[in-house]
Nucleic acid binder design. Structure first.
Lengths: 345, 345
DNA sequence: CTGAAAGCGCTTACAG
DNA sequence: CTGAAAGCGCTTACAG
């Protein structure tokens, strides 16, 4: 509640010295600096946000546009939102949450009113309606995700394509000749959500390169449909001996349950990899090998780039974060013996 | 990007007239008003946010403090966050998202820097650490949730106690004499999350008033534990013929699955009510009678009250939203016949 | 190393 | 019904 004038009086200096002492934008004598710091601390001084925005060139506010679609996994989405806010705080930035029903309008509004210094775009679709606006707004912006047309944009994301190849190779190197991918529900691909498509496409390309038999099925929020999908996987001949799950946590849990119910042991009968998962796969039964998708990492890097963009124009770029592979012993060689393992029905 | 001066020049009036014409805070001649509006529209005028904050007494920004605990249902949480942001927009307010690791510090910061006009508190614990700070901050604040000590606070929430009684009565009135409650996981009660406790306590009180046999079990994110809980419910003598589920969507889905697996038909063998659910229970199989918890309703009302508090101090209050009961035919009378229904094992 | 002062772009009494 | 002007509380050239 104290103003800069009160701090200046208490420290026996001018308000400009207070400002410089606190911001460090100009060298200030050490004893002066200490007196100012002490006065500010004692009075609980916090610069008035509005005055700062008006006088300075920074608002210390970022806009976060993160539409939540019906098909989006809410826990993952939430994790990204929180990770963005947390990362922003490290640079003394706060985050203004834009609502979905105002996606483009909100961006225009907070930009032209100069409420925010930059924009973070989450949940990017392959052909995202917000992108043309982002391009013409000319305000520092970073996307977490890679759209079809990245021209003029700064994008960060996990390297889903390498992740897909990594998953395929992990199984192929263990000797699996027939593998399957349990993807996300149909709606996600249909909507053009970007990384699931990239993962799936890179996966099938790699499978072909490795000359493997390959089955793809979509998951479902409906457990009956999910089980039907898994059953159809298991009835493929030759039966897949390696499974990669790239879908939401409940689907992965339900799939594991159903596999157990069908009498399949992991990894003895079936090797399983959890891919691009934001949750802790060590809590699954059994724990799964995982190529994690870490919201803090993607969001943190996005904020770093955005902060750099605030200092001066950044060249458009697509920065892909290399995937990691975490072993939890859910992958082994394919079952031995000429006869396929018996599967309960 | 246009300033008020440009609009004034274009409309041939002073900047004060522009301000008044746009805000409506002073009567302005109709033709003048129209000219100003047209000029503003044509120039794409948006008042500078910082200048507005500094000159006016409003920042048009609200702080939202919404810690996400491990046990919190992310989808429900997300729905409340979005509902707050959406409701705020109806009053031309934007929302600044505070992070959990800065819960109290963030509140102090945005308050003393005068960044926000008010605070919305989500996910209120029975004994919430943030509340003392809220009380002494003296900034308009509204909680969605009811803590143990509501002194000096404005709280809004669904009337969970009436909801609990409603659920009990609905079953009791149908003739059920033994009923069960499947609550949230243990951690939620332990942490002191408020509404689950209120619901459970009111439920058991009502059950006693209606002289019913009553069993309470906690759910679990772990499906095995969940099934064990349900099995223990079903082995109670006399077997409960009515079940109320007050837990997250995955648990409710898993419970229904397990009940079906055990051969129990709904409502022939077991009547089931979904309580305080934020998701669409018509999508469950079978669809369930529900006492919904509607994020838009609670959050909307919270914002209404907060807007009122901005106009002038509000008396502390606890406003409870009356619950509704939606029939989807998952409740009937108890099974007839003297013998209990056979339950598969 | 420090200070006096302009100016950021609005809102709102104060005048007429 | 409308305008001229003070002032919100900072930041940052401009001076010394």
């Amino acid at each position: 509640m104290a103003s800069i004038h009160e701090v200046a009086k208490a420290a026996g200096v001018s308000i400009s010295t207070v400002s410089y002492a606190l911001s460090g934008k100009r060298p200030v004598g050490e004893s002066t600096r200490a007196r100012v710091a002490e006065a500010a601390r004692r009075l609980g001084y916090q610069p008035n946000a509005g005055a700062r925005m008006l006088a300075g060139r920074r608002t210390q506010l970022l806009a976060l546009t993160a539409p939540l679609h019906a098909e989006t996994s809410a826990p993952a989405h939430m994790a990204f939102v929180l990770a963005v806010a947390t990362a922003a705080r490290r640079y003394d930035y706060d985050v203004v949450l834009l609502t979905e029903d105002e996606a483009s309008g909100g961006l225009s509004r907070v930009t032209s009113s100069k409420l925010v210094d930059g924009i973070v775009v989450l949940d990017v679709a392959v052909n995202d309606q917000r992108l043309d606006l982002i391009r013409e707004l000319g305000i520092p912006s970073v996307l977490v995700g890679v759209p079809a047309d990245t021209a003029g944009l700064v994008c960060v994301d996990l390297d889903f394509e390498t992740a897909a190849r990594l998953a395929v190779d992990q199984l192929a190197n263990q000797g699996h000749r027939s593998i399957a991918l349990l993807g996300d529900p149909h709606g996600i691909y249909q909507r053009g959500s970007n990384f699931q498509q990239r993962f799936r496409d890179a996966f099938s390309t790699r499978v072909a390169e490795r000359h493997l038999d390959y089955t793809f099925v979509e998951s479902s929020q409906n457990p009956v449909e999910l089980r039907t999908s898994i059953d159809s996987l298991l009835s493929v001949v030759p039966r897949p001996t390696g499974l990669v799950m790239q879908c939401a946590e409940p689907s992965q849990r339900a799939a594991l349950e159903h596999l157990a119910g069908r009498g399949l042991r992991i990894p003895a009968d079936l090797s399983v990899i959890s891919a691009t998962s934001t949750f802790d796969t060590s809590q699954l039964s059994p724990p799964l090998d995982v190529i994690p998708l870490i919201p803090e990492e993607s969001s943190g890097r996005a904020i770093e780039l955005l902060m750099a963009a605030l200092e001066g124009p950044l060249d458009p770029m697509v920065e892909l974060i290399p995937p990691r592979y975490v072993v939890r012993d859910s992958v082994a060689g394919p079952p031995t013996g000429t006869d396929p393992v018996t599967v309960n029905h």
